[in-house]
Structure formats: C-alpha cells, structure tokens
Amino acid sequence: MDSQAALNTAKDSLKGLAVGDAFGEQWSALSSGRDTSLEGPLRNRKTPPAAAWPWTDDTAMALSVGQILERHGEVRPTELARAFGESFAADDGRGYGLGMHELLPRLKTDPDGWARYVTDLFDGQGSLGNGAAMRIAPLGAYFYDDVDRAVEQAALAARVTHAHPEGVAGAVAVAVAASLCARKDQQPLPADAFIRQVMAHTPQGAVHDGLGQAAALPASTTSTEAARVLGNGSRVRADDTVPYAVWCAAQNSDDLTQALWETAQGLGDVDTTCAIAGGIVAARTGVERVSSEWLRRSEPLPDWVNT
C-alpha cells in the first residue's frame, strides 16, 4: 500500500464527511419540527441560510480516527480511546449521545480500560447506535486497496465505543462502501451491485438485511421513499441509518453535492446520514467540485487535514 496515497484518500473522505455533517446539521431544525420554514429551501435545493455551518460529533470523532491513521497507519484501540476522550473533554457540546457522555470521560482518564467500559453501556448490551458508522468512512478510504483489511480495522475501531454487533456491523458496512468508492481507477458500479458488494462483507443481522432492502429498491425510488422503507436515522440505530446512507451514496457516487442534497431529503438524523454519505462519496470525488460558498460556510478542519 502506498501510505501517502492512502492518507490523501482518507483526508478527501474526511473533508467530505465534515461538509456533509455541517450541511446536514442545517436541516436538523426542520427534521425535528422546530423550524418548518426550512422545508421550502430543502425541497427547492436552496443553500441553507445560516452564514456558518458548524460540524458535530460525527466530524469530531472522525478526526480522531484520522489522527490515529496518520500516526500509525492502523487502528490502535487504546490510543483511539484516548483521542476520543480528549476530544470530548475539549468540546463536549458537539451533540454527543447520552452513551458517549457516560463513556468518553472514562476513556480520557483510563483509555486502557476501554474494553471494560464499553460493555457497561445499555445494561451490558453495548451500543447499537450509528456513532461508529458515522465516523468511519475515512478509515475505509484509507484501506481502499484492501477491503478485507478495511473490514478488520473498522470492526476494531468500532468496538472502542460500540460493543453491540449491530453497531460494529454498521461501521463495517460504511468502511467497505468507502473502500469500494475510493477505487478511482474503476468505473462506478450500478447502485444495486455496489450495495450487494457492501452486503457481502457486512456481518449478518439487521444492518445486513437493511442493505438487502436497499439493493432491491426500484431505480425510480426517491430519497423520501427510500427513507420510509430503510429508516433515516431517527431511531439513532445503525440499522436505521446505514442502509439509507449507503443507498444515497451508491445512487450518487460521482457527485458529492448531489449525494448530499438527496440524502438530506430523507430528514431524520440528517447530519449523520449526510456525514456517512459524504465520507463515502468524497473518497472518490474529493471536495473540489463542491461550491466555494459551501466550503466557506462549513466549519474549517484542523490544518493537518489540509496538508
């Protein structure tokens, strides 16, 4: 593996994830019913009105994954646990879920204990949420030349915070999708074939079954219809989030802006579905074709991402 090429591809994915996260967050008030005035702009694809688009915990945690890959070229769970904990301590107002508010302070003070703490969540079942999936696309992009390695590393990274098999499966599916999408020397696969390849590497269970539903959707299906069938992240579960986000990415694998508009139409956990779809598609496209206005409004990333 060309380590520099791998890192550059991961950074492209990370940039797309962050733009997707920041863009998707602009519609969260509409999704929750707090601001229905945004319905027209979303339906008519008008740039969200806010002058500044901050990103959320999706990007904050993805940055930690990216830092570990840049330093070591692989996941090191204790170091990743420490990075998650330190990022949370530095800024805990990024929209982290309740489970992470319980877990991440522990990881900061005792990162070596991550395997014990993560199994304490949700009465010992571990989290089956979408948090491991939302941050993992850059890792899949990094291992673009070895999908089996992407699977193994994604599962390892997921288990630092998500002990439930479905939480891990969601991360694996997204990492595989990003790994496949990042192969720029190959023509994009038809959406249904792409999703079936992702399925082939995803553990059996609810996420896998949701991907099967996604692959079977008729070509004429709209994003709104797909979200009704597959879920849109409103339950904040991996199986309610990942199939839809992967479907949106598969439908628009050569056009990041189009992918984000299509994904946002499904509402729900919009920042997370857009972060996942954005990270997958940008592994192939980068962010060069995203409008300068969007890039200017999106919260900047740390300097190391752009070097």
Rank of each mutant, 00 (worst) to 15 (best):
M134C: 07
S32A: 13
I136F: 06
G231M: 09
E25I: 03
A81H: 00
P49C: 04
D146N: 14
D21T: 07
A81C: 04
S127C: 05
D12N: 12
V287N: 05
E299L: 10
L295S: 01
V270T: 15
A238K: 00
L267E: 09
S223L: 07
V160P: 00
G233A: 07
V147P: 07
A6D: 10
V287Q: 02
D303P: 01
E79R: 08
G129P: 00
R116A: 13
V19Y: 11
G205D: 06
D148I: 05
S298M: 13
R43E: 12
A226L: 11
V229N: 03
V246G: 04
W304I: 09
V160K: 00
V246D: 06
G93W: 10
Q265W: 11
N8R: 15
G85N: 07
E102P: 04
A250F: 12
S223H: 05
H162G: 00
S31V: 10
V160M: 03
Q204S: 14
A89C: 03
G131E: 01
H164N: 14
A150N: 06
G266K: 03
R284Y: 10
L80T: 10
S223W: 11
A10E: 11
D239Q: 13
P111H: 00
D192Q: 14
D254M: 13
P54S: 12
R196H: 14
Q204W: 10
E70W: 05
P48E: 01
V168L: 06
I276N: 06
F194S: 04
D146Y: 10
V118R: 12
E39K: 14
R106A: 09
L63D: 04
P105G: 09
A177V: 12
T285A: 06
G210T: 08
A81S: 03
G140A: 07
A157S: 15
R297K: 15
C181A: 15
D91Y: 10
G140W: 06
D123C: 04
G33R: 02
G20V: 06
T56Y: 02
E225R: 07
Q153T: 00
D209C: 02
L295V: 05
W53K: 04
V236P: 04
P138W: 02
L42Q: 06
R237L: 15
T119E: 09
D57V: 02
C274A: 12
A283N: 11
V270Y: 08
N306M: 12
D185H: 14
N44I: 01
W53L: 05
Q213K: 12
W294P: 04
S87D: 15
R116I: 14
Y96I: 05
E152C: 05
T56W: 05
G279P: 00
T119Y: 00
D120C: 11
N44K: 10
D110P: 06
Q186C: 13
S127F: 04
L69F: 13
S298V: 15
H162F: 05
W55Q: 11
G170W: 02
A163P: 01
Q197W: 07
H101C: 05
A216M: 03
L189Q: 12
G205V: 07
S64R: 13
G131L: 09
E288A: 15
Y117M: 03
A51E: 14
Q67R: 15
V270S: 15
V305Y: 03
S13G: 05
Q197Y: 09
R76E: 11
G113M: 08
L14A: 11
L69H: 08
L121S: 03
E152S: 14
A282C: 11
D209K: 10
A169G: 07
E25G: 13
P105K: 09
G20M: 08
G167P: 00
